[in-house]
Amino acid sequence: MASLLEVKDLAFHYMHGVDVFRGVSFAVEKGQMFTLLGPNGAGKSTLLNCLAGLAAPSEGYVKLNGEDVGRFSARALAKHIGYVRQHISVTYGYTVREYLVMGAAPRIGMFSTPKQEDYERVEEAIADLSLQKLADRAVSNLSGGERQRVAIARAIVQNPEIILFDEPTSALDYGNQIRVMRTMKELTERGYTVIMTTHNPDQPILLGGQVAMLKADGTLAVGDADSTLTSERLSELYGTELHLVFVDEVDRVACVSSKL
C-alpha cells in the first residue's frame, strides 16, 4: 500500500541553475511525527513548500496517497494538508475567532460564508488550545508564542490529515518552544500526521518519531530518531563537533557541542 506521503529523488533548483536541495527521499506514514532536520540553507522551507504543493519540484515527485500533489487542486490539497508557518503576518485587524474560522475554507464554497458548524469547530479549537482569553483580540496584536498557538488552532479547524510546521519554534523563547513541541506530540496522539522542520537536533530527540537529516546535496539519513541520530552524523550534518550524551536527570540523550 502507498505511504501517506512519499518523497522520491526530489530536487529543487532555481531557473538560473542554483540547487536549493537535491536527492531527497523519504516516506511518511499516517500518525507519524516526522522531523526534517538540517542546517540553515539545506532548503528545508522550500522542501516543505514542495510537500504543500506551493512549489513545484524541479526533479522527482511528492505523492499523497499515491497521487502526485501537483495534480491536486488547491482546495483538494487543503483538505489533506495544513500548514503552520514560522511567522504569521496579518494586514488587517482580524480577531482570533475571525482568523480561526478561515481554517474551514477548504469546506466552504467560493460564494459562501462559514456555517454554524464551522463556528462550533472554532470554539472547540479555542478550548483545545486554551485560547479563551485571546479569542476576541486582534491576531496582529498577539505575541509570537500566542500567534503560534493560534496558527495551530487554525490547523485544527482545518482538520487535515497532515499538518506541516515550518520552524515552529525558531522565534520562540525556551518555555514556548517546549509547549509548542508538546502540542505537536499531542496532535500525533490524536491521529494527525505532523511534519516539521528544525535546525535544532534536540527537538527530534525530544519528539521521537522519524527524522530525515537533510543536507543541500541530499538526504544524509532517514529513520527512527533514536537510532538515526548519532554523534558522527550530527557532526557531519552541521560541520562541527557534536556529541550525544545521556543525561541521567532527565532520562534521555541530549546533543551538546564540544568546548568552543
Binding site: 482546495r75 500548514y83 488587517y92 475554507a105
Partner: peptide
Amino acid sequence: VAMRWRLNLISLGEEEARSLGVDLKRE
C-alpha cells in the same frame, strides 16, 4: 457581496490563501 468572505482569505497573502485551498488566480 457573495465573495466577501473570500476577501479575508486572499488578504492573508498568496501562500496562506493557497494553503487554505483558495484558487487564487481565479478568485
